[in-house]
Design a protein around this nucleic acid. Sequence first.
DNA 1: CATTTATATCCATATATCGCGATATGGCGA
DNA 2: TCGCCATATCGCGATATATGGATATAAATG
Lengths: 107, 107
Amino acid sequence: MDINETMSSAELDEMIKALSHPVRRDILNWLKQPEVYFADQEHPLSIGVCAGKIDQKTGLSQSTVSAHLATLQRAGFISSKKVGQWNFYSRNEAVIQQFLARLADQL
Amino acid sequence: MDINETMSSAELDEMIKALSHPVRRDILNWLKQPEVYFADQEHPLSIGVCAGKIDQKTGLSQSTVSAHLATLQRAGFISSKKVGQWNFYSRNEAVIQQFLARLADQL
DNA sequence: CATTTATATCCATATATCGCGATATGGCGA
DNA sequence: TCGCCATATCGCGATATATGGATATAAATG
């Protein structure tokens, strides 16, 4: 989602649905403090958190977590950066804040 | 939900799920300005909005809307008041505000 | 007391979501 | 190039959610 325009109703819907699963909210939360939850990552946390690390933390299968990450990314809450064979995920703080503002407004 | 204590994780989950359907968000929105959306109601809007009026507005079946209202009520977002043969629904503003604050905090 | 009205509940069906194993893809290293 | 590793995607069964018709309940009304 473009952070410079207000999100559409369909986008808001996608975002709320993305948040409606506890594991996805957990992931967002972990990404808020990577140094707390992913202290064992070899790569610098500044790039983001490696997908595999998130898999481990959830205890779910790799494919399931990959789908959850895709859902969060489609909603705009996180972005991924591919470095070598790894994919590093991080929060889009601006989008999250805009979502909260929009929700507060529309609710 | 008791507005004097912080909501549990399970309650938050129930609330987000309740919001994850567009019709339920519509209903919450309509109840925000009953005088705009339910101007034709015979009973005073101060008691709340009659379930049947909400049925009409959605265009969905009576049973479906009744289920949506029950979902919103279980989540704590709305309350119902039975007067005669009618059930009047209204928003729980305090709960809604507390939800938004909690979400902003936990997200 | 029978009938109508409002609404919740029950039931069946349809659709969406979740979770997993298997497979595809793409980078990396021997 | 031949695998190995990380991760996305596919296909499928299981579970959850949505929807509407039918029915139950309860109040109002003649």
